[in-house]
Simulated scan of single mutants.
Amino acid sequence: MYLVIGLGNPGDEYRHTRHNVGFDVIDLMAGKYNISVNRIKFKGMCGETNIAGEKVILLKPNTYMNLSGESVREAASFYKILSENIIIIYDDISLDVGKLRIRSKGSAGGHNGIKSIISNMNSDIFPRIKIGVGQPERSLIPYVLGRFSSEDRILVEKTFEAGIKAVETLIAKGCTEAMNEFNGFIA
């Protein structure tokens, strides 16, 4: 069993912002697998599907980014999911728009959602798919809460598709295979 979490902030004002790329990927996965991510549970919205013969819970925490770990901990605890089977999808300012990077573990790298997950799970060992949103020229918060230019939106949507394929590869073949296949991805 796998838990796939897209990080973001709830509410229409945050829809399609740089900080909500995780939500965008979960929404596209739900469409691809013809499921709804609308069940209110684990301080978030979730839905269930099968990928590569594995039961997969898709989750969008409703806790706001900085408390994402509470939602992840509740779902992981309820389903007794190993941290290696918890896949987090989120924005990364250290990657250019159109790039994607997969890691099997590591620090939060300054990302408050990941800090919250590490703190709540007492572990930094969980696969993560980082979606590049580019570096801010000035202030970080207005940048990540802002929307992409139309050109960047086209690139990031290609990255979302690669992100879905990366999740599928992670589940079917493991993290190493997914890293080998997708860490060089550029939209």
Rank of each mutant, 00 (worst) to 15 (best):
81 I>G: 01
90 Y>R: 08
100 L>Y: 07
76 A>I: 12
69 G>T: 02
67 L>R: 10
65 M>P: 08
91 D>I: 01
102 I>R: 07
104 S>F: 00
64 Y>G: 02
80 K>E: 14
91 D>R: 05
86 I>K: 08
67 L>V: 04
94 S>H: 14
77 S>H: 13
76 A>Y: 06
85 N>A: 06
64 Y>P: 01
92 D>S: 00
75 A>V: 13
101 R>D: 01
93 I>H: 05
81 I>P: 03
67 L>A: 10
82 L>D: 15
72 V>K: 04
77 S>L: 13
80 K>F: 09
89 I>S: 07
87 I>G: 00
82 L>A: 15
96 D>Y: 05
76 A>N: 00
87 I>K: 01
85 N>D: 13
85 N>P: 10
89 I>V: 15
81 I>L: 06
105 K>M: 14
79 Y>C: 03
64 Y>V: 08
72 V>F: 05
94 S>R: 12
73 R>T: 11
96 D>S: 14
98 G>P: 03
70 E>P: 00
65 M>R: 04
70 E>D: 14
67 L>W: 00
68 S>N: 09
66 N>G: 11
100 L>C: 06
107 S>E: 04
100 L>E: 00
102 I>W: 09
69 G>W: 04
69 G>N: 06
77 S>M: 12
96 D>L: 09
90 Y>I: 09
98 G>F: 01
101 R>L: 04
71 S>L: 04
101 R>F: 03
92 D>M: 06
100 L>D: 08
78 F>L: 09
65 M>F: 09
76 A>M: 13
100 L>P: 05
89 I>A: 10
69 G>H: 10
88 I>D: 05
75 A>H: 08
90 Y>W: 01
87 I>N: 00
79 Y>E: 10
99 K>P: 09
80 K>R: 15
86 I>W: 06
94 S>D: 15
70 E>N: 11
64 Y>E: 02
86 I>F: 06
85 N>K: 15
93 I>Y: 09
100 L>N: 01
85 N>T: 09
67 L>N: 13
96 D>I: 08
73 R>D: 14
87 I>H: 07
102 I>E: 08
95 L>E: 00
103 R>Q: 13
67 L>C: 00
77 S>T: 15
69 G>E: 02
72 V>S: 02
69 G>C: 09
83 S>F: 14
92 D>W: 01
64 Y>I: 05
